[in-house]
Design a protein around this nucleic acid. Structure first.
Length: 782
DNA sequence: TGTCCTACCCTTTTT
DNA sequence: GGGTAGGACA
């Protein structure tokens, strides 16, 4: 047909060229998922099956959306900018901006990120005099987001006790506050858009008619609301539904904790009566031993749609396993191996160190730093999340919407203007009394406080006036200079970085205008912005008609609103010094979607990986196993796994047994670098170099070794029968004990000393428990 | 108003 | 152990 389809394997070809009907693509790790998704879109367009405007493709991250657009425009000579390719939140935002009246929102609504949401909740709790010990803002945030992700409004939440009823009331109060201030949180973007489609027949039908093909990436990560939204958009249950092309991998579902519902895959299969379930099982990434390990491990999960990866790459090297006496030794060993790899010509950027939780990075970072090996840690603060950037953005929010109390509160006294807590209290009282925004309540505050506040509102008004005819970048520059932010940071010891960031914001604004096509012509065409408070939902149909054409969108949003939206929806890169040849460090979660020649999976211990919080229930363990599966499948050529007998955690030394997942890996694919290797044909490290003699590692005769590898179960999992004895307790990890009440069990972890000493014991009949050794009556049975 | 100190938290995270 | 949020104090 065309060279679009060249070089696709049979499975990929089948997926790409499916007829217009619901399809589920089970795309294994490294099987060319993105390629299939983008080629499918290109193929549909090229064959005239649908116009670019008839396609909606949705992803979870901006990165994935961008990747899709880039690849697509390299395949077809089309402008992908106007296409509906984006994240769930991005696309919902787009619809809400187009139909702001029908959605009951002000045109310039601001988007709260999680931080903003939390401070809005704290503000709410304070204003209502709620006991924040009993109702912590964090819990309320979780409660609200959880409800919204299930599609539930306060009235829909079932509260069966007073405690929960209070939460529901606070949820309702929070929604009112948001509505009054013209702000929308992340979950609200989705829920509001869902309701818009659900309750507005004209708009729903318009989009159902328009989108003939709906493509979904990472389907296993969708939550309940996202799936409902997709069903509505795709016209599920109507005469003429869109063809939904869902791509996902149930084995890589690792986001249950934030609402992802793997069950959506099965539901989709049944509800849409999917006749085409295509499995992409050919892996183009990893060598055989690595894939065998992944397949073997994941086969221990019970509920799977079922899939087995294969490769033509050959067995390659076995997976190397190392046991360290401590986390420090583990780190030192990693340094040695990395040095070897670099000496053999490996690029640092092709080496990744993965860990289950962020806290683990510290020890390894320290070792890398001391060794002078360049490294890069993923995660942490992103550009638009920095305090100084949020301050500057708050000023800009106020230019668009003075009723945004969150923005007002953030900068009214930053930099300091002599408006103290007392003055703000008065202001808040006035706002409550006159039921108005903080900015409007300024007029009612008497005395010195009143005039200081008035000076602030005048500053905002003057800024709004002065920047009216300015470009976006000029506006940003004006704001950071005239707000006093720059001056403030000049007087601070560590202010230089912050000033540079603020200047970077000007650059970012410039780049944004170019990238998004907000040229001068577009600026001239901007229609007057409606700054009136939110209109009631379901306004007359005129507006809906007027903006049904999404191509009209760029002129609906001013560059400033667009930029602020961009800042909320796309918090920016969190990878410092990108581009440098540095070893990559990240959590396993953060590694999803990436691949490296050499991968270290560290901290493979019971309690860490699987994490202790997930060990209790079977679903939790299955998710941890999928997480391990993701970790393993990141490696192309060489995979290392390591664990340590002792580790500093939360300021205490803890002793862990090695992860149960070792018992689920194929022996033939493992090469033990430390004593348990005996009997598996592994070459002991000692024979490769003289590392045994180094001070960071105990001499072989110091390492007690039983000579047998434990067979299944968690008991004695470290392979060292009398490995580590906690001073004074008389107990050790791996020891079998008897308790009068709980019966027989095995110690899986020890921590603390003296009277604080406690043990985690996995009881045969009663499950895992933490017991204080000074209290519990335990008898060793050996 | 800014700084210092203490209490408290601690899995994973995108939007 | 280490980061941070919020309160006490100069």
């Amino acid at each position: 047909m065309s060279d679009l389809l060249a070089n696709l394997n049979a499975e990929q070809l089948a997926a790409v060229t499916l007829p217009d009907e619901p399809a589920l693509i089970l795309a294994g790790a490294g099987s060319g998922k993105t390629r299939v998704l983008t080629t499918r879109i290109a193929w549909l367009i090229q064959n005239g099956r649908v116009s670019p405007a008839g396609i909606l493709a949705v992803t979870f991250t901006n990165k994935a959306a961008k990747e899709m657009q880039t690849r697509l425009s390299s395949m077809l000579p089309i402008n992908t900018r106007g296409m509906w390719i984006g994240t769930f939140h991005g696309l919902c935002n787009r619809m809400l901006r187009a139909h702001f009246r029908d959605a009951g929102l002000p045109q310039t609504f601001a988007i709260l990120d999680s931080q903003d949401q939390l401070s809005a909740l704290k503000r709410l709790l304070k204003s209502l005099n709620v006991d924040d010990e009993k109702y912590p803002a964090k819990n309320l945030q979780y409660f609200i987001n959880n409800a919204k992700e299930q599609g539930l409004r306060p009235a829909d939440v079932e509260a069966n006790d007073d405690f929960n009823k209070r939460f529901v009331d606070l949820y309702a109060a929070y929604d009112l506050q948001c509505q009054r201030e013209g702000v929308v949180d992340f979950a609200e973007l989705l829920l509001r858009c869902y309701e818009l489609l659900r309750y507005n027949d004209a708009i729903r039908q318009h989009y159902q008619h328009r989108f003939r093909h709906v493509l979904v990436d990472e389907f296993q990560d969708t939550n309940v609301l996202q799936y409902q939204w997709l069903k509505l958009l795709a016209g599920y249950g109507t005469q003429n539904p869109a063809a939904v092309f869902a791509v996902g991998d149930d084995d890589q579902s690792i986001y249950a904790f934030r609402g992802a519902n793997v069950g959506n895959m099965r539901d989709f299969e049944h509800e849409f009566r999917v006749r085409r379930l295509i499995k992409l099982e050919q892996n183009y990434r990893s060598h055989g031993h690595i894939l065998d390990s992944a397949n073997h491990l994941i086969s221990h999960n019970a509920r799977r749609l079922g899939k087995n990866l294969r490769t033509d790459a050959g067995h390659g090297e076995p997976v190397r396993v190392f046991q360290g006496g401590s986390d420090g030794q583990e780190a030192a060993w990693i340094i040695e191996e990395i040095r070897d790899q670099i000496a053999q010509g490996a690029s640092r950027a092709e080496i990744a160190i993965l860990y289950r939780s962020n806290a683990q990075s510290r020890v390894i970072e320290h070792a890398l730093f001391s060794a002078g090996i360049a490294y890069r840690v993923y995660g942490g603060l992103r550009f638009f999340e920095r305090a100084e950037i949020k301050h500057a953005l708050a000023y800009m929010q106020l230019l668009e919407n003075p009723r945004n109390d969150a923005a007002f509160g953030r900068v009214v006294n930053f930099p300091a203007r002599g408006i103290g807590a007392r003055s703000l209290e008065v202001l808040q009282d006035m706002a409550r009394q006159y039921d108005c925004a903080l900015a409007e309540a300024v007029a009612y505050v008497p005395g010195a406080a009143g005039s200081k506040l008035a000076a602030f509102t005048r500053l905002i008004e003057k800024t709004r006036e002065d920047t009216r005819r300015m470009t976006l970048a000029e506006t940003v520059e004006y704001v950071i200079n005239h707000s006093g932010l720059i001056t403030h940071y000049q007087g601070e010891k560590e202010g230089q970085d912050r000033i540079e960031n603020l200047q970077e914001l000007v650059t970012a604004a410039q780049a944004f205008v170019v990238e998004e096509g907000y040229g001068l012509e577009a600026l001239a065409a901007v229609i007057p912005v409606d700054r009136s408070p939110a209109a009631p939902a379901l306004a007359d149909g005129d507006q809906a008609q007027q903006v049904l054409d999404p191509e009209a969108l760029p002129v609906v949003m001013t560059p400033l609103v667009a930029f602020l939206t961009h800042a909320s929806l796309e918090a920016g890169d969190n990878q410092a010094q990108a581009g440098q040849d540095a070893v990559q460090m990240m959590t396993v979660h953060a590694a999803k979607g990436l691949e490296f020649d050499v991968v270290f999976i560290t901290g493979m211990e019971e309690g860490l990986f699987p994490h202790e919080n997930s060990m209790m229930d079977p679903d939790g363990v299955e998710e941890e196993r999928r997480l391990m599966y993701v970790a393993i499948t990141r490696a192309r050529k060489r995979l290392y796994m390591s664990f340590a007998q002792s580790r500093m955690l939360h300021g205490q030394t803890r002793y862990h047994v090695r992860s149960r997942f070792f018992e689920e890996l194929p022996e033939a694919s493992l090469k033990w670098l430390t004593p348990p290797a005996q009997g598996y044909g592994g070459v002991r490290r000692q024979e490769r170099d003289s590392a045994w003699g180094r001070d960071w590692f105990r001499k072989p005769e110091d390492v007690p070794y039983t000579g047998t590898r434990p067979t299944g179960g968690m008991d004695n999992g470290n392979g060292y029968a009398d490995a580590k004895r906690e001073a004074g307790t008389g107990f050790r990890v791996g020891q079998s004990v008897f308790h009068n009440k709980f019966g027989e069990g095995v110690i899986t972890a020890l921590e603390g000393e003296g009277t604080d000493a406690r043990a985690n014991i996995n009881f045969k009949r009663n499950g895992a428990k933490w017991l204080a050794l000074s209290v519990a009556k335990l008898d060793a049975i050996d």
